[in-house]
Design a protein around this nucleic acid. Structure first.
Lengths: 153, 153
DNA sequence: TGAAATAATTTTAGGATTAAAATATCCAGT
DNA sequence: ACTGGATATTTTAATCCTAAAATTATTTCA
């Protein structure tokens, strides 16, 4: 094992550990304060950004980088809880469109505030320059292009 | 939302995306070439490092940063496949000790080689200096100390 | 010594995720 | 209009993970 390989392994371990730890703390905080997991929060966030038009199931899945089956399942409890509405497209009967309800918007607004502050807190140790540097370095990683989704419009 | 908060959110998204993408590509490669998930690989790796003494279930869980219930479940198929052996401690009947079988050692050796090269590959875009810088920046993140495990020996 | 407290692990129930099979709808060409 | 193929989504079965309850074994101390 070369020194370079050893360093890559260490960096990978650090990266994974940091990411897991922050994710877990955000998930725990979201569940405690709002009863919503980070997965559900991500759905609400994507739908909030999409606005009143909502998003097709496929587009939602693509933005969240999860399978469509996953989207079906994660949205289910959000619909049950009245935070998200599922509408069948009138133009194309196959298409499912999801959008936030008024209740979902209200809740998301509160969650987003807290979420922002938790993330800020995790990164307070880094100056603005260091933050930019971190992003630049992450951008240099060779990330596998997911599937052949690249073709999709 | 301040500029600083916005930057933290962006950095967090980049961090999570990079970590997910690399993890997924390693998991896929491990499954394809060896029929072993990344979780199981992690168990094999910890046991390999522990050597012939093996590891107690609790210690294994702690090193992998997962719950003990998870360890019980992830080791089960490894035992079924003859890669790991579970032994009851003779000194303390409550304690379960896991260690690699000869077959497990052999397989892990091959997997570790490939794994090392995949990780190296993901980080090839970064110089040794950049790698060190990345680790330094990750070290500045405020990571939530997991539970009150800190007390444990 | 033996009951209660403690400790290590497993079991259970449920959420998140994926891949693959199933379903439902639309579209094209005849 | 009908059939075959493509497309969008849902369902199903499995893995991974957690928290909490249950189990099993040890230790303590009256």
């Amino acid at each position: 094992m070369t020194q370079s390989e050893r360093n890559a392994l260490r960096a990978w371990l650090d990266l994974l550990t940091a990411s897991n730890a922050i994710k877990k703390s955000i998930d725990t905080a979201l569940r405690t304060q709002f009863g919503v997991s980070i997965s559900r929060f991500d759905v609400l966030s994507a739908l909030d950004r999409a606005g009143p038009e909502g998003l097709r199931a496929g587009d939602l899945s693509q933005r969240l980088m999860v399978t469509e089956g996953n989207t079906t399942q994660v949205t289910a409890p959000l619909i049950r809880d009245g935070l998200v509405k599922r509408i069948s497209s009138r133009e194309d009967g196959r298409v499912a469109i999801f959008r936030l309800t008024r209740k979902g918007e209200k809740l998301f607004e509160k969650m987003a505030d807290e979420h922002r502050s938790w993330v800020s807190d995790a990164f307070t140790g880094l100056s603005q320059n260091e933050l930019a540097m971190l992003r630049r370095l992450l951008g240099k990683l060779k990330l596998p292009l997911d599937k052949e989704k690249r073709n999709a419009a």
